[in-house]
Structure formats: C-alpha cells, structure tokens
Amino acid sequence: MRPGEWRTLGLFAALDAEGLEDALASMPLRAWRSDEVTLLTQHPNDPGPASTDESGAAKEFLVTFAPAAHEGASSQAPADDTAAEARSV
C-alpha cells in the first residue's frame, strides 16, 4: 500500500457465497469500495464453527475492503453519498 491508502478487514460467517454477498451488499457505500473475499479453511486446532444449519456448518470468509472511486466521479461524491445514507437511516 502507498502512504494514505487504507484497507479494512472483516471476518464473516455465511452458509454460502450467496449469503455472504447478501451481507456485503447490505453494508454502506458498496458502490465506493472493492471487496476481496477469501474462503477460510478449517485449521486442525479449530474447535469448529459457531453456527450451523440442517445442511452443515457455516463457512467463514475473510473480506478485505478497499476504497474504489468510480471513473469520472468527483472527490466530493463519496462524502455526499455517505451523508445521504446517514439521512436515510
């Protein structure tokens, strides 16, 4: 990363990739970030998943969030979108 760049990491559990996508899509400013998803595998010392359903265990995903400006967007556009989301809550 270059100076001034940032990334945010998140750990999510979902039954499948579609469930994870639903969670990511519900988060603020989806249009202004890129999400890099890594499916995590079980470690030999892992006690097991915290949540399950009838079909088995939930999968765990590591997600790296990074800002992603749209081509041609003004530098003020993300701030405007953030303010609009705050008013709609």
Rank of each mutant, 00 (worst) to 15 (best):
M1H: 02
R2F: 14
P3F: 05
G4L: 14
W6K: 04
T8I: 05
T8G: 05
G10S: 13
G10Y: 04
L11A: 07
L11E: 12
F12Q: 00
A13C: 00
A13S: 14
A14Y: 07
D16M: 14
A17S: 04
A17D: 12
G19H: 10
L20D: 03
L20K: 06
E21G: 01
E21T: 07
E21P: 11
D22N: 13
A23S: 10
A23L: 15
L24T: 09
L24F: 03
R30N: 09
R30E: 06
A31Q: 11
A31C: 02
W32E: 10
R33H: 07
D35P: 06
V37I: 06
V37G: 09
T38H: 15
T38E: 10
L39S: 14
T41W: 03
Q42S: 11
Q42R: 12
H43K: 10
H43W: 05
P44K: 09
P44V: 12
P44I: 08
N45K: 14
N45D: 02
D46Y: 07
D46N: 15
G48C: 04
G48D: 07
P49L: 13
A50P: 06
A50S: 11
S51Y: 08
T52W: 13
E54S: 08
E54P: 02
E54G: 08
E54D: 14
G56Q: 09
A57L: 07
K59V: 03
E60S: 09
E60F: 03
E60I: 04
F61R: 03
V63A: 15
T64W: 01
A66W: 04
A66Y: 05
P67T: 02
P67L: 12
A69T: 01
A73E: 06
S74R: 03
S75R: 15
Q76M: 01
P78R: 09
P78I: 09
D80G: 07
D81I: 00
D81T: 09
T82I: 12
A83Y: 03
A86P: 00
S88F: 02
S88V: 00
